[in-house]
Design a protein around this nucleic acid. Structure first.
Length: 129
RNA sequence: GGAGCAGCCCGGGCGAACGCCGGUCACCGCAAGACGGGGUGGCGGGAGGAAAGUCCGAGCUCCAGAGGGCAGGGUGCUGGUUAACGACCAGUCGACGUGAGUCGCAGGACAGUGCAACAGAAAGCAAACCGCCGAAGUCAGAGCGUUUUCUCUCUGACUGGUAAGGGUGAAAGGGUGCGGUAAGAGCGCACCGCGACCGGUGUGAAUCGGUUGGCAUGGCAAACCCCACCUGGAGCAAGAGCCAAUAGGGGAGCGUUGUUUCUUUGCCGAAACAACACGGGCGGCCCGCCCGAUGCUCUCGGGUUGCUCGCUGAUGAGGCCCCAAGGCAACUUGGGCCCUAGAUGAAUGUUCGCUGCUGUUUCUGUCGAGGCAACUCGGCGGGAGCUGACAGAACUCGGCUUACAGGGCUGCUCCGGCG
RNA sequence: GGCCCCGUAGCUCAGCUGGAUAGAGCAGUGGUUUCCUAAACCACAGGUCACAAGUUCGAUUCUUGUCGGGGUCA
């Protein structure tokens, strides 16, 4: 049970190259608060990377947004399709959003990703092309 | 009771579950390039007073450093504290406040250069626009005396005297009063201000008293500058290791002349010295010094963008501020106790229970007042809901500055009331 | 995280160092010209010189502090 609610280093994106690669090739999905870019990593596991730039706010605001998003992903990642590398970028209105609103935005992104799962480019194809 | 000043402190508390980061111990176990990496469990740890701004100062690291000079930068009342400082403490002076107190980039304008629009006569050296004066001089006219010259009186013009008053300006060469004078003026006097000298006190900045000058030397140094003191450059993305490696590609430069020596039949060649020039180094510049042919220098490109250490410490300019001593104090010395985050797309979160305080909304009990009543207002109490600032470590310290809901403690000042 | 630079009209910039008129080009508005438009010409409007405090008689300029924007690092 505890296995499904963890969020450790292995399920995060940790290198600048990974972020740039996904932002360059990935499928874009928008919500009013967030922007997601997804890429098939062909491992069957979902990995998440968060980007909250200084445009969103100061360090306190950015930490709060990032922690709310991480917390939602830790508990509710079963609502998302598996096998994707996803970069979630916070938009400026996310600064004043509640954790409930941020969770709803993540759910919406999950629905959208499921609907367009087949259209998500895979890492190998992208590298080839 | 009201208004205020200064200093210090807090920045909700307890518990549970699920997570995250790193530490340590035990077990499992991957890789075999490396000082590489993983899983499970136990134990204990995990943001601030400003962690912020990056404005100063240091530790630490690398680069540079024969020496000298210049430039540049910083500080700027005095004495002290400190590892150091532009910080802090104590004082002096000035400004503000009834006061407790607060604030002050607070040296030098007889070293020099400069600046001041407009207005104004004049803006730094004295000068005189309107005025004021008729003492002195010249000329003209009138009058009296007189033969005339001349003298006297009056009027006007010019030369002249003056800076009290007017006016301009941010600023016009001490201020007020009295005397004085043709009118005036430190021209004289009194008081105040200013300067110089002497003496007392103080380590000193200064201050007090006396004598004296007779006002000269206006303002701006956050204008250049002068004086005194301080000052190499860069920054943990510093820097070191794993690391093998002097990997390796293109281009440019490494000169000329003379003398001597060696070799030689001689040329050639090599070395040394000197002169002139060139390039490079001395991380601002100059002098000066050093270097320049199987290696070195400069320049343009290319590859890598990983991991470990630095890195958080039983040792430190450490913390607590619990004692003692010295000091007005900052602080110092000795003793006691404690060891307190360490990430790197970057950890400190989410949910729940109980509870303290503040503000607010609502329900309700009781008491009092008003009202015929419905009800309204106020005091005391209970329940429920909402609310609670500024802000997130990034090598580490000492300061400063800026932001901040609300609350607490101590000392002091002024005003009012009562005794 | 460290270091450095810049904020002037709607836009791009002068003027700042060395203090006293806030300017240029484009854009805007009105007019002239044309059958109409463009171009050209003339005129006009538009500024808290990022903000605050200080020095000064006087600050876009000098000093200090805030706020915003940008660049760079092996």
């Amino acid at each position: 049970m505890s296995r499904t609610q963890r969020f450790r280093k292995e399920s995060r994106l940790r290198k600048r190259r990974q972020f740039l690669f996904i932002q360059d090739r990935g499928l874009k999905v928008h919500s009013d608060l967030l922007l997601a870019l997804a890429l098939d990593n062909r491992t069957g596991k979902t990995r998440l990377g968060l980007t909250v730039s200084s445009k969103v706010g100061g360090a306190v605001v950015r930490n709060r947004v990032r922690r709310h998003l991480r917390e939602w992903f830790r508990k509710e990642q079963a609502q998302w399709p598996t096998g994707l590398d996803v970069v979630v970028i916070a938009k400026v209105p996310a600064a004043t959003a509640t954790s409930v609103a941020l969770g709803a935005a993540m759910v919406k992104l999950g629905h959208e990703l499921k609907k367009r799962r087949a259209a998500v480019p895979s890492k190998a194809e992208s590298q080839r092309g």
